[in-house]
Write a protein that binds this DNA or RNA. Structure first.
Lengths: 251, 251
DNA sequence: TTGCTAAATTTGTATGACAACTTTAATATT
DNA sequence: AATATTAAAGTTGTCATACAAATTTAGCAA
């Protein structure tokens, strides 16, 4: 039996006591649990750092690192000179990570997957928007369509942004708060791609104008099936444009 | 002219220099930018804390709080005694916040929105799964269906989990990596609700078994339209069950 | 070359101090 | 009495230093 084997045997009998969590991480999880169980509520003020240190029995260093972690994740807000507050957990805290994920992982393969998701989600969302849109939603969409028409034909970046806003406004018009959370990160990458399309494909803008108008018209008339159809067609054409760009682009 | 007016005038001329960002937050954004621009890549080791302190010209306290924030958000991994490493940005970092968001905000209203999203996404996902599923996907689904049949009829929690896994496996079978990211947080809340349904609605389990089998069958036979139809029907029935529960439940 | 040991390196935690900001309490003014 | 103003107290932000705990590196021995 080799010395290594002996060591292994001993370490199996007496498994190492190692606290896998640092103190600060332990505190993070304790406070997070309080938030999850709603034992502390948004707006509520937590005890001061000094008091929390005493309660947890840790130094201010460890406590602060824990608080900063929770702050970074959007669960706490720390106001200098004032105190530590529980925050509402905003949609922002979901949108930012999803955006970052897409931004860091976006390649040809992911782009295909993004387009597939858009094809799945956006037509039925347009359908719901046609059923539930408010007057305010309509006027926002109308303004957006006008903006696109008026936009300087060479300002490709702006065109990409207006395009993005059109689709986001439809998501908002669905009156389902979860839908924007899911699609907004996807739309955030659109301007980058769309402005390339607008720059290099001649009829891209006129196609977008035509279809945006058509979709808006269906939504205005509460034509649910029509809105879904128009959106799907619009996405299919936009995908073709995107493929043309991709073919030209370097690996 | 009152002293206040004078003060105001002066403060307009010489607007206060106030760094709205704390030092640690400033560092967070600097490092985050390096990651976004891929100037540092996953796996790469950053300089040691001591060196970073010198480079940024801040104390170790401020630097560490920044590193801990980035660690909490999943961009860095810090290994005691070893160093600071850039991580690749896992789907986990998206799924966790979305799950927390749903958990904290879930009420009757949100539940309706969750059901609406499922109705939008899952039928076309089943359709794609029918087209793209691997042999391995099929066997996982088959095992899952058997598990549900064999499951102790009174173990409502387990039934809820098996149910969740069935739907998640279909999402995975779509071969689109973004779909599980979106639906997994939604499915994570299912067991809580489903186990109530299984407990209180007599034919809930038999209905689930019937439809899971039917969906699996369509996916096995690559019957795209059939898979989508079966999934939609399944969801509609499950929704009815959920509504019956909701009617009984206290506000 | 391999395995062990010791030293050096590096992150984790604790403490004390002061700065910067906010809140509260006391004071002065009208 | 009500309202500003000011001062004091309270609270978070940052710095410096020290040591603990884990890992890595280098040196030594078989």
């Amino acid at each position: 039996m080799s010395p290594q084997d002996v060591n292994e045997l001993i370490s199996n009998l007496f498994p190492r006591i190692h606290n896998p969590l640092s103190l600060s991480q332990e505190i993070v999880e304790r406070i997070e649990e309080l938030v999850r169980q709603k034992k502390v509520l948004p707006g509520e003020k937590l005890p001061t750092e000094a008091k929390l240190c005493k309660m947890f029995g840790v130094s201010r260093t460890s406590l602060r690192e824990a608080l900063q972690k929770l702050n970074a994740r959007g669960l706490l807000r720390i106001r200098k000179g004032s105190g530590i507050y529980v925050t509402d957990y905003h949609a922002e805290n979901v949108i930012k990570p999803l955006s970052l994920f897409l931004e860091l992982n976006l390649d040809r393969n992911y782009l295909l997957q993004v387009m597939e998701i858009r094809r799945i989600i956006e037509p039925p969302v347009a359908e719901i928007a046609a059923a539930k849109r408010s007057a305010e939603d309509l006027s926002k969409l109308e303004k957006n369509c006008n903006d696109l028409k008026k936009c300087d034909p060479h300002d490709y970046i702006r065109q990409g942004q207006i395009d993005k806003d059109f689709h986001l406004n439809i998501a908002l018009a669905s009156q389902n708060q979860l839908i924007p959370i899911i699609v907004e990160p996807i739309f955030l990458l659109m301007p980058k791609i769309r402005s390339l399309v607008y720059e290099r494909i001649d009829n891209a803008k006129s196609s977008a104008i035509t279809y945006h108008d058509r979709i808006l018209d269906k939504i205005r008339n509460s034509d649910k099936a029509g809105a879904a159809r128009a959106m799907l067609k619009h996405l299919q054409i936009a995908e073709e444009h995107t493929f043309q760009i991709l073919a030209d682009l370097p690996a």
